[in-house]
């Protein structure tokens, strides 16, 4: 699924009345459309088209292989009565609620630390950013070994005399294990976003605060954090969208099952299973529409909340 696309709508400049002007305006309009045509086509073909098609499919019963037939709201009704759907919603929401704040705070702290003149700063920036540029699939497989009953994590814990569980095989730990992995992979990326934001804060503000007697913690809390709001807004929104759409790590680490006992079944994994494994395209499409609405509402709410805070800048 694509992220949020913001398309700026440009209205035509108001031309004075007159045939020559109108012709020119019309010609420019045509040229403008011509230039945007490739992007518009791609957008319709690969983003809006499939999105609208999934809306259409959510009202049909189809197994991919048989003839589809219209069932009205039936897919939604069935979905609302399905415990598995609510389990997946709960998993995705819990995942987002834990991962988004944690990764945001960690990214902020890392950025604040690495924005100072530390030795080997470049190395640490690279090291923290590295997970973001590596393949999610490869990292998931490496973490499957770390989380193995006899893996690295339990080996480390055994030093302290702790007998660790089979992290991914135990329904109580599987989702938390994936959260940990996800936080690790995304914090580094968001750290870079925060770093960019930090560069934009004028040094004079800190100097002035120092003269006024603010200590480092105070200038962090009163200057850095508020002035980073635009970056924070971006990171929180991207984090929410990303976590609610989490699929790959669950898919790989549970070997496509969302197990053990559905503990790692996220909404998108369930959508995949409905469509490609269980032959219930309608349920999958209906769940897609509901997930879209959920993400839309949460993003609008975040937007509204940050807007208020951003206003005072």
């Amino acid at each position: 699924m694509a992220g949020i696309e913001s398309a700026g709508s440009a209205s035509l400049p108001a031309f004075p009345k007159g045939n020559a002007f109108r012709r020119r305006a019309r010609r420019e309009l045509g040229v403008g459309y011509l230039f945007t045509l490739p992007s518009v086509l791609l957008l319709f073909l690969f983003t809006l088209g499939p999105a609208l098609y999934s809306l259409y499919l959510s009202f049909f019963s189809w197994s991919l292989l048989n003839h589809m037939h219209f069932v009205g709201w039936q897919n939604f009704v069935q979905l609302f009565q399905m415990p598995l759907f609510w389990i997946s919603v709960r998993n995705s929401v819990v995942f987002a609620l834990v991962v988004v704040p944690t990764q945001t705070v960690i990214a902020l702290l890392l950025a604040a630390i690495l924005n100072q003149n530390l030795p080997a700063r470049g190395f640490f920036r690279l090291a923290f950013f590295f997970p973001a540029v590596s393949s999610s699939a490869v990292i998931s497989i490496i973490f499957m070994w770390i989380y193995n009953k006899f893996g690295l994590l339990n080996g480390f814990l055994s030093v302290f005399g702790i007998v660790g569980p089979d992290w991914l095989g135990n329904p109580s730990f599987a989702l938390s294990s994936i959260m940990l992995l996800n936080i690790w992979t995304t914090s580094g990326y968001f750290m870079v976003v925060f770093l960019a934001g930090l560069q934009a804060i004028p040094a004079e503000l800190y100097e002035a605060a120092a003269i006024d007697g603010a200590d480092r913690w105070k200038s962090f809390a009163r200057i850095t954090v508020p002035l980073l709001s635009p970056s924070t807004f971006f990171i929180v929104v991207m984090g929410i969208v990303g976590t609610l759409q989490m699929f790959d790590q669950s898919f790989i680490m549970s070997q496509g099952t969302g197990g053990p006992l559905n503990s790692t079944t996220t909404v998108v994994l369930l959508i995949y299973q409905f469509i490609f494994s269980y032959g219930q395209v309608g349920y999958g499409a209906a769940a897609t529409v509901l997930l879209f609405l959920l993400i839309l509402l949460v993003t609008l709410a975040t937007n509204w909340w940050f807007k208020r805070k951003l206003d005072y800048l």
Binding site: N148, K149, F150, G151, D166, L168, G169, N170, Q255
Partner: peptide
């Protein structure tokens, strides 16, 4: 179960 001994 296989996971008990770290097997898939």
């Amino acid at each position: 179960l296989p996971g008990t001994v770290g097997a898939s």
